[in-house]
């Protein structure tokens, strides 16, 4: 079944003009209903309130406020219009260490540049088709960082099996 992408609204925050336009065109060609763009993350709350995006795409490296700082602000600031919004961070970095840093900041998906249209499509499909639980701890708020289920895992089970409080919202 095809997704009804014309109903989807995406905010793209990227400081590089050419890259921002390219990403916006890719999304447009994929059939995304509304694409909003910005060159920096300092006004992200305002942009989210004005445009009510369903997904935010953030560049990691930006001059004023980088993508991970923006992610933490969206996730943790009491003024945030939507702390649960899926956030896709795009970056040229590809070391596993960097992926972990992004994940710990509360990023939902990680997209490495250069990318193909299919990479963008897969990330969008994934955040729609497989929404993740959120975890809130003293030092973390964001999507559950465990992505893979190890069927052979025999160690202690510290999450659901330990009857942690599950909240519906």
């Amino acid at each position: 079944m095809a997704l009804q992408l014309q109903r989807l609204r995406i905010l793209v925050v990227e400081d590089n003009n050419n890259m921002r336009e390219l990403i916006a065109s890719v999304l447009d060609n994929l059939g995304i209903g509304r694409v909003f763009t910005a060159s920096g993350g300092s006004r992200v709350f305002e942009l989210m309130q004005e445009n009510e995006p369903d997904i935010v795409i953030l560049d990691w490296q930006m001059p004023e406020m980088d993508g991970l700082e923006v992610t933490k602000m969206i996730r943790k600031d009491p003024e945030s219009p939507d702390p649960f919004i899926p956030i896709i961070v795009i970056t040229g970095y590809n070391s596993l260490e960097r992926v972990k840093i992004a994940r710990d900041a509360g990023v939902t998906e990680f997209l490495i540049k250069p990318f193909k249209a299919t990479d963008v499509a897969k990330r969008i499909e994934h955040v729609i088709n497989h929404p993740r639980d959120f975890v809130s701890t003293a030092d973390f708020f964001g999507p559950d960082r465990r992505r893979k289920v190890d069927k052979n895992y025999n160690g202690p089970k510290r999450r659901k099996e330990d009857k942690l409080k599950a909240l519906d919202w």
Binding site: D133, F134, V135, R159, A166, W169
Partner: peptide, 9 residues
């Protein structure tokens, strides 16, 4: 464990 909350997707 009480400091950890799981919020359903």
């Amino acid at each position: 464990q009480s400091d950890v909350k799981i919020i359903k997707a």
